[in-house]
Structures are given as C-alpha cells and as structure tokens.
Amino acid sequence: MNEKNPAPVAIVEDKPDILDYLCELVSEHPRFECRHKYHNGEEAVSFLPQTNAQIAIVDIGLPGRLDGIDCVRLTKPKMPDTLFMMYTVFEDTEKIFESLKAGASGYLLKDASDAKILASLEDLLEGGAPMSGSIAKKVIEFFQKKPEPSKAAEVLSEREQEILQLLSKGRLYKEIADVLGIKEGTVKVHIHNIYTKLHVSNSREAIGIVFGNGGK
C-alpha cells in the first residue's frame, strides 16, 4: 500500500471525541485513510462487511447488545482479509484471549501514544501482531506459566504425587526407587494405590488426569 493508495480504515468507537480523534490521527498518516466510522457493534456488524476496509480499530466496551469482541467475532468471517485491532481500556487476560480468538490481530490500550497507534497500524499491514507492552507481557506470562497439578492430585498422598511426577518424566520403577530411597516393591505398591484412587488402569491415564498431556 503506497501513499497514492492509502489503506482504508474503519473505526468502531462509541465515544464521539475518541472516534474523531482516531479518525483524524489515522488520516494524517500517508499510509492510511479513515473512511468508515461506527458508534456501536450492531451498526458495525451490519455495514462494515460491505466496505473495503483493510484495517478496523474496534473498542471493546461498546454499548448495546454487541460489544467489540462480538463485533469482531461476527464480522471477521465475512471479511477475512481485514485486520482487526482492539483499542480498549481492558487489560485482563480473559478479554485479551477472547479478542484474539474472535479474530483480532492486535490489542492496544487507550493510553497508547499517537506514535504507538500509527506504528501499530503499520505493523498490522506488514503482517505483525501489535500489542501494548503490558498486554504482550500478559500473553507471554500466560504461555510460560507452568501447568499446575489438577484437583485430581488432591486424592493422592505427597509420596504418590512424587512417584507420579517421576513416572511422567519417563523414570523406570527402579530409578524411582533409587531417587526416593525406597524399595522397588514399595514403588509398585504406591503405583497400584495411585491407579485405584484415580480409577485408571495405567500410568499414561494417571499422568493425563493429574498433569495433562505428558506432565512435563
């Protein structure tokens, strides 16, 4: 997209002052042109798919029956090539992932500077997934967080949990016995008790119930 053919941008925002501010900011940049403005989700869902908008900036906290996430979820399938960027005050993990699942490619907080907003729009056009710093941090923390044992582990004793954890790492019965300083026969007894408590017949099922896939 060059300066002679700026990317058409749509904005969905219920507050008139913010809507006008964004539209003016976007249109001042040679690569973009604000062509479509909507004040609520219902309006956007009805008319946005009829446009050639290449980028849509969408507020989450819209009034009425449809919020911004609903708007993206209902509109994205009708215009798969359009790049949606959320522009919101919400920074909780649930809203972030609901937006991304709905089809958003970017997520900016409303305290973003003019330069950040414009840089994010350029990033979108170039195939990026722009996010405010604090949002990107939450996404990274979510994926780096180690899975916690499920509540199923609560029925197991501390020793049984230790043994199941070692099993999930591929340790043999003898190796588990050596690590824990107990007899191999004792390990087998604990494993039998684990299967009984979890109502399973093998270690794979037990590991899956307590730790998820693989438990690693």
Rank of each mutant, 00 (worst) to 15 (best):
residue 160 E to H: 05
residue 123 D to M: 05
residue 119 A to H: 08
residue 138 K to P: 01
residue 148 E to W: 04
residue 108 L to V: 11
residue 203 S to C: 03
residue 176 I to M: 06
residue 112 A to M: 09
residue 146 K to D: 14
residue 122 E to W: 04
residue 149 P to E: 13
residue 185 G to E: 10
residue 171 R to D: 02
residue 159 R to P: 07
residue 133 G to K: 12
residue 209 I to K: 14
residue 136 A to D: 01
residue 174 K to I: 15
residue 211 F to L: 10
residue 190 H to C: 01
residue 189 V to G: 02
residue 176 I to Q: 06
residue 170 G to R: 02
residue 192 H to K: 11
residue 168 S to D: 08
residue 138 K to I: 13
residue 136 A to L: 14
residue 135 I to H: 00
residue 169 K to I: 04
residue 120 S to F: 02
residue 178 D to W: 04
residue 198 L to S: 06
residue 109 L to C: 04
residue 190 H to S: 10
residue 135 I to P: 00
residue 155 V to M: 06
residue 118 L to V: 11
residue 189 V to R: 14
residue 156 L to I: 05
residue 118 L to I: 15
residue 203 S to P: 02
residue 120 S to D: 03
residue 155 V to P: 01
residue 151 K to W: 10
residue 102 A to V: 13
residue 148 E to H: 05
residue 134 S to P: 00
residue 129 A to H: 14
residue 195 Y to D: 11
residue 148 E to K: 06
residue 193 N to W: 02
residue 189 V to K: 14
residue 195 Y to K: 03
residue 160 E to L: 06
residue 164 L to I: 03
residue 153 A to Q: 05
residue 146 K to E: 15
residue 189 V to H: 08
residue 126 E to D: 13
residue 116 K to V: 06
residue 171 R to P: 01
residue 110 K to E: 01
residue 167 L to M: 15
residue 108 L to W: 09
residue 203 S to M: 06
residue 136 A to I: 07
residue 200 V to G: 05
residue 160 E to T: 07
residue 128 G to I: 07
residue 188 K to M: 14
residue 186 T to A: 14
residue 167 L to P: 00
residue 137 K to C: 11
residue 169 K to L: 15
residue 125 L to C: 03
residue 185 G to S: 07
residue 173 Y to K: 10
residue 189 V to A: 09
residue 110 K to T: 05
residue 197 K to R: 12
residue 179 V to W: 08
residue 157 S to W: 04
residue 200 V to K: 00
residue 127 G to H: 09
residue 180 L to N: 04
